[in-house]
Amino acid sequence: MSRVLPWLHVYVFSYNRGDFLANCIASIQRHLTDVAVWVVDDRSNDADTQAYLADLPEGVGLLQSQAHESSRHGGLYNNMQMALEHAASERAELALFLQDDMQVVRDLDADDQENIEGFFAHFPQAAFLNPLFLKGMRKRRDQRITQVADDYPVYFRHYPEKSNPRGISYADAMIANVPRLMAAKWQFANGETVNAEQADKLFGKMGMMLHPFAMFLPEVPVFRGKKKSWAVAKAEQLRGTQPNRFFGMTSRQIAALKERDVATVLPVAEDYLVTERDAKRPFTYSQINVYPWLRVIHKLAQKFAK
């Protein structure tokens, strides 16, 4: 860990998706040089994931939760708290939180670093900055609610009719200002909505990068490592279980991202990122949603199982 820059630590939250985790870590090491990288594993019991964790790439550390929880999110939020406290003990200024089904898609350069650090300097109350591309399925809504700040190159969302600040003040994938969270005695709660509510009160709105560098992979298998319904298993059979990786952005794609009119053209994933295999557009982020008929069958199976 001697090559670590003090301004950023990276934490990847993992459970039973070894191939996805390996892809996420490889993308970080390919595009983010000289950062500390940690896998925060939720006690994976999948053999492939355990094999990967036993032989992590050089420079990648491992933190493991005490026990996997059976709730919808597993132990994610407890693990995020553990990562935050670890980052504080390492005296990290900023911590990038990613999940194993995400990928870093381009290099960060000096301008990106200056913009990220400058955001937190310019907004002394802010604690979160979102580094992800926007989803094409929500493009029309995002065009309406996403605006460039008057005095700094960053987006904020203005969504007055929304009943809660989820996606406005907080998201589970973010760049976090570690000292500010610790000073506020921040504790991750079990759910994005409740975390957004406390973030809104403590820190106000979350910034969103004009030039993002990471994104969810499309069409990720669901309920990996759990009992699958017939519909989920059928979706896996039709779409496969391996990550549909993004190609790293080319210099031309990066130039198009950074030279666009940011006030009118949002950074939508489908406009800048290319997958290795064909993917339904706009991207869908769960395999079951690729096939509406399978989703209906799956929902019915869940209903009758209760």
Rank of each mutant, 00 (worst) to 15 (best):
L94H: 12
D101Y: 10
D48T: 15
V104A: 01
G74S: 04
L98M: 10
G59W: 09
D101T: 13
S65I: 14
G61K: 11
A95C: 02
D107K: 14
Q99D: 12
Q103W: 06
E93I: 09
I116Y: 08
A67L: 07
G75D: 03
M82G: 05
E69F: 08
Q64N: 04
N78L: 10
L76F: 03
Q64F: 02
D55C: 12
D111M: 10
A87N: 04
A51N: 04
N79A: 07
A54R: 14
N78Y: 00
E114F: 07
A51W: 05
Y77Q: 09
P57V: 08
V60T: 12
D111L: 13
L63K: 08
Y77K: 01
L63H: 08
N79L: 14
N79D: 01
L96K: 10
V104W: 08
V105F: 06
E114W: 13
D109M: 10
A67N: 06
D111P: 00
A110C: 02
L63W: 08
Q113S: 07
Y52H: 03
A110W: 03
G74D: 04
V105C: 14
Q66P: 03
M80V: 05
A54Q: 11
S89K: 03
H68K: 02
I116S: 00
G74E: 01
M80C: 02
A110M: 06
G59E: 07
L62K: 06
G75F: 07
Q99Y: 05
A87G: 01
Q66M: 02
N78W: 04
L108D: 08
A92I: 01
I116D: 01
E58H: 13
R91N: 15
E90Q: 15
N79V: 03
D111G: 09
L108N: 08
D100S: 14
G59V: 14
R72M: 05
A51M: 00
Y77D: 04
L96Y: 01
R72E: 10
T49V: 00
D107N: 13
L53I: 07
A51P: 07
A92W: 05
P57T: 08
S89F: 02
N115H: 07
L76A: 04
L94D: 03
E85N: 14
Q81P: 10
G118S: 11
Q66S: 11
R91E: 15
M102T: 11
G75M: 04
R72N: 09
E85R: 13
D101C: 13
R91L: 14
G75E: 03
L98F: 02
L62V: 09
S71F: 10
A87D: 07
A83W: 05
R106V: 00
P57Q: 13
S70L: 13
N115A: 15
S70W: 05
I116F: 02
L98V: 03
L96W: 01
L108T: 02
G74Y: 01
A88E: 07
E90W: 06
H73T: 14
A95K: 09
H86D: 12
M80N: 02
Q64P: 02
D55E: 01
V105M: 10
D101N: 11
A51D: 09
T49M: 00
V105E: 03
